[in-house]
Design a protein around this nucleic acid. Structure first.
Lengths: 336, 336
DNA sequence: CTGAAAGCGCTTACAG
DNA sequence: CTGAAAGCGCTTACAG
């Protein structure tokens, strides 16, 4: 069923049908109704490929998550982000093409995807800072928005979460509770979220005149296993608290602490970052920094659609706030 | 950059360029080389929308996961399945459009997506048995394959996992270890995986001449919280073992058991189903039935592509095997 | 082996 | 307000 046939059935020209489909104001009410009736009766659905070709629009965007197999499996962060992007797209009648960037050899596929003429814009998440993917993206001339800021480029739109403040809040909380030997398990320092959360940790200590001790900082990879290993490495420092830069790593830390026969929060207080759904059910329930993951995804969609619709608009940068969620993994100040 | 321009640059016609792009054998080696050089030099990428329009192919399929927001968040099963589908598609140079079926009102969007002319085929997962979505899919005339069988339709392709045998294996293991008061937390009985795994439980008991007790069976929803609640409900039955129809529910069961002050496996043995990555790290590590989730996704892709390429091929049904993975949540037979 | 031409299903100036 | 026509970037009989 195509335009031509609808036209025939409703006794007008193809152009007119096209106009009513696209809600053009320059159609008489009478014709509009007549055509709409046929459209509804035959359940007509315009062909997106043809539309894309003729008019450039097809309402499809790409979502690229450049992470190896393992991380995506392990971190609910991505599921939630994807969910946020997808529901926002549903609301706006956009479809999304999902692409997971696997190792280097796949970069050619990324180019192909960008240049194949199906996508009107792209959202990318979880980039390494200064990822070559971004370069490729920029060259494609497609509108795009980053999830996570990129300090090396000033002219692009991104939505990020306030990682520095969030991490600082986490460590301030620990300090308020009287903890002083606060170690941290960081995210990869090749990712800006990893860098920023470490910066927040450092800032909170400095505010109190404390000097961050290099031995108190172990770099990890946002995975449970990584958090576990890092915590084992930190245990000999005899910490009384740990700030893990993600809830999943905090989970690993909890496991390492338990294995060492120590107790949370009595011996070691634990704060995470993310506030994943399951963090209410860890043992003990995790005190953490909530970031609005789903909203981040939705915001990225809104920004991208704006960029698509107004190509000359200025780029926006949005930084979403975080929030300290106190549960029991740090104890309360009364006890200390 | 389009065909026309490549043609001009290489001094041949558009038709010829198209032929070399599509690897047609009817082109002389000399021309092919000449054209290919230009193609590579300018980094030409054919326009998929135009291709789709002209020839019907664009190498894009849809993946629809009809589950509410909550489940997708909570169950890594879906992340892994998506991963499997995406990597298989990457290998075959297909792109995938991901669509999450939210509540009923969204069904119209599903139709739109199917009929918009971008998709060449569809994979759907985790359907309710006899879901109306399948009806819509069938009407669309698109090739599709189901993840999970549908007993009500005999002419469609699906890939499923042997849920019945898997569940039976799980319960046999418990029986071998001497457990006799074996309860089960089932998946939703509106989903075939839920039904099949319960059937496996029942079958294993029957083999031993045991009668499945209705009080020993609680229906749940594949979520952690659901597993927790179900286990609390089952605890008064004084079970010495529980078969949870998914690892995520087993996690909830572990939590309920721990809260009740009981020990795993001493008081209650626990078996799950899935073998998620994190099931090696539960406390205690979970004995479970491994199902090849990623392979399921990849297989669905292969089957769908075959259906797309050979529209008159016969539908295939593939049932992938499961495997018992013994860790420590059931103890060993020596202890019993 | 190669090219000219028709056609895929739309949109959108242009003319009336 | 409406229609005829050109065009988006490809593919593919058809003719040579």
């Amino acid at each position: 069923m195509n335009l031509e046939q609808i036209a025939k059935l409703s006794g007008v020209s193809r152009s007119t049908v096209s106009r009513v489909i696209n809600n053009s104001p320059q159609v008489s009410e009478a014709t509009r109704e007549k055509v709409l009736q046929v459209v509804r009766r035959v359940n007509y659905e315009p062909n997106a490929a043809a539309r894309r070709l003729a008019a450039g629009r097809a309402n499809v965007i790409g979502l690229v998550i450049p992470t190896g197999v393992s991380t995506l499996f392990a971190d609910p962060y991505f599921s939630i982000l994807i969910q946020g992007v997808l529901s926002a797209c549903n609301l706006r009648s956009y479809s999304v093409m999902l692409w997971l960037a696997e190792p280097e050899q796949e970069r050619q596929q990324f180019r192909t995807m960008l240049h194949c003429g199906l996508l009107e814009g792209v959202i990318t998440a979880s980039m390494l800072s200064n990822d070559t993917l971004i370069q490729t993206l920029a060259e494609s001339q497609l509108p795009y928005v980053l999830v996570g800021r990129d300090p090396t480029r000033s002219t692009i739109s991104y939505v990020d979460v306030d990682n520095i403040s969030g991490a600082r809040e986490a460590v301030r909380h620990l300090l308020r509770l009287g903890r002083r030997r606060i170690v941290t398990i960081t995210g990869p320092q090749s990712m800006l979220a990893g860098v920023d959360r470490l910066a927040g940790y450092t800032a909170a200590l400095r505010e109190r005149g404390l000097l961050p001790d290099q031995d108190f900082i172990v770099e990890s990879d946002f995975s449970e296993a990584g958090g576990y290993l890092a915590m084992r490495q930190l245990l000999p420092r005899q910490p009384d608290a740990v700030f893990a830069a993600s809830d999943v790593m905090a989970l690993g830390a909890l496991r390492a602490i338990r294995e060492a026969g120590l107790r949370v929060p009595e011996n070691i207080a634990v704060v995470g970052f993310d506030d994943l759904p399951q963090s209410t059910r860890t043992d003990p329930p995790l005190t953490t920094i909530r970031q609005p993951i789903q909203r981040t995804g939705a915001m990225a969609v809104e920004m991208l659609i704006e960029l698509i619709e107004y190509p000359n608009g200025i780029p926006h940068r949005v930084v979403l706030p975080t929030e300290l969620v106190v549960r029991t993994s740090c104890g309360s100040s009364l006890k200390n």
